[in-house]
Simulated assay, not measured.
Amino acid sequence: MNILHTSKKFLKVLACAGVLMAAQQAQAQQVTVDASIDSLQLLIGEQAKVKLEVSMDAQQKLILPALRDTLVKGVEILDIAKPDTQLLNDGKRMLIRQEYTITSFDSALYYLPPLEVLVNDQAYRSKALALKVYSIPVDTLNPDQFFGPKTVRAVPITWEDVKTIVWLTLLMLALGGLAYYLFKRYKDNKPIIKKIKIEPKLPPHQQALQEIERIKSDKTLRNTDPKAYYTELTDVLRTYMAERFGFNAMEMTSSEIIDKLMGIQEKDAIKDLMVLFQTADLVKFAKHSPLMNENDMNLVNAVDFINETKVEPDPNAKPEPTEITVEEKRSKQGRIILLSSIGVIVIAIVVVLYQVLRGIYNLWF
């Protein structure tokens, strides 16, 4: 008896579970179709929008109504919007919206039949709609009265209307001036004049003393590289002698320089200079390493020799910079560049002129 009671109870549970599963499956596959219109009344020629909404399972297949030119006779379809799809319930359900733009040119009360869709090849319909179209009201009491066309009103011209024309005109004038200037340059073919300003040269002794001062300030050269030190020092003296006495000391040996000076100066005057050149030759050719005080003494001897043999310039003479004028004929390449620039500018002027005339025509005609 207990076994029979338990079996009946188990069958009831199974039946309830089956009913619940069927209800859930039916709800999951439920399809709803709805249609609405945004305006129930229109004047002839006005437009209204019919919206179709379909809610269904995401796995189902939908076919929308195949409408073309008319919804019903007298109601025309102007536009069919692209369907809009929205996913619901975590992607399990879909809501599809389709919008139709309609109009009518005959006054009447129109019955809009239900819109039919196919979901998994099964037809579903929306509710029916109604649309009332009115004609434009006419003054029946004065049928012969009419109103003629309005007079043409003059629209004032503002700065926004003409600013583009003004700026383009100014640009055209500037380009025209530039083209005229370049054409004159090309036609005249005047030489290019350059003026070079040359500063007066220092007297030989001043130039030599400046170089010696530079060598003196370079302590590293004097302490670490005696060969370079004496080479620079003797080169300064050779340059000074060439400009002061007029012989090519730069191409002469030390002994030749001393012999030359012996014929110009007294032997006592060049005694210290002889020591300097002898030391320089030993350093350069015999790898002699002079002492620090010996280097300083030779530098002082060089300064003394310059001061004893220098020729002071006239203090009343005021040296003026020399200015040299150089004339160069314009090259063939320069003339080609000028002519090409003129051509480009002329083309730009034509384009700007076209834009100006077009703007004037559109503004006043």
Rank of each mutant, 00 (worst) to 15 (best):
N89F: 07
R68L: 07
I63P: 00
M94C: 07
Q47T: 15
A81S: 15
P83N: 05
M94S: 12
V50L: 15
T70Y: 04
R93I: 08
V50C: 04
P65K: 09
L64Q: 01
V72Y: 05
I77S: 05
D84R: 07
L64I: 05
E53Y: 03
E53C: 07
L78K: 14
E53I: 14
G74D: 06
K61M: 11
I44W: 04
A58L: 06
Q86F: 11
V75K: 01
L67R: 08
K61Q: 14
D90C: 04
V72M: 03
D79V: 03
D79M: 04
K92H: 09
Q86W: 02
L95N: 09
G91A: 00
K51I: 10
K51D: 08
K61L: 11
G91V: 06
D90M: 10
L52Q: 05
G45K: 08
D57M: 06
M56P: 03
L71K: 04
I96L: 09
E46S: 10
G91I: 03
R68H: 12
K61N: 14
K61F: 10
L67Y: 08
V72A: 01
P83T: 02
A66T: 09
D84A: 10
T70E: 11
D84G: 03
T70P: 00
G74E: 05
L95C: 03
M94H: 07
K61S: 14
L71C: 00
D69Y: 11
L88Q: 15
E46I: 03
E76F: 14
G45P: 04
Q47C: 05
E53W: 05
Q60T: 13
V72P: 02
V54D: 06
I96K: 11
T70A: 07
L87H: 11
K92S: 13
E46Q: 15
V50W: 01
T70K: 13
I44S: 15
E76N: 09
D90L: 12
L62V: 07
G45R: 02
V72K: 00
I96M: 08
K82A: 10
D57L: 07
L64R: 03
L87Q: 12
L67K: 09
K92M: 09
L64Y: 01
K49P: 00
Q86E: 15
A81Q: 14
G74F: 08
G74H: 07
I77R: 04
R93Q: 15
M94K: 15
V75D: 01
I96P: 00
K73P: 06
M56E: 13
M56D: 11
V54N: 00
I80L: 13
V50G: 01
L67I: 11
V75G: 02
E53K: 14
T85I: 10
L52Y: 07
D84N: 10
K51N: 12
Q47D: 01
K61P: 03
Q60Y: 01
V50Q: 09
K49H: 12
K73L: 11
N89Q: 12
K73Y: 11
A58W: 05
Q47A: 06
M56G: 00
D79Q: 15
M94L: 13
A66W: 05
L78N: 07
G91F: 02
K92F: 07
Q59A: 15
V50Y: 10
L64M: 04
A58H: 05
L64D: 02
P65H: 04
A58P: 06
G74P: 04
T70R: 11
A48H: 08
L95M: 07
V75M: 01
P83F: 04
M56L: 15
L64P: 00
L71W: 14
L87N: 11
T70S: 08
E76G: 01
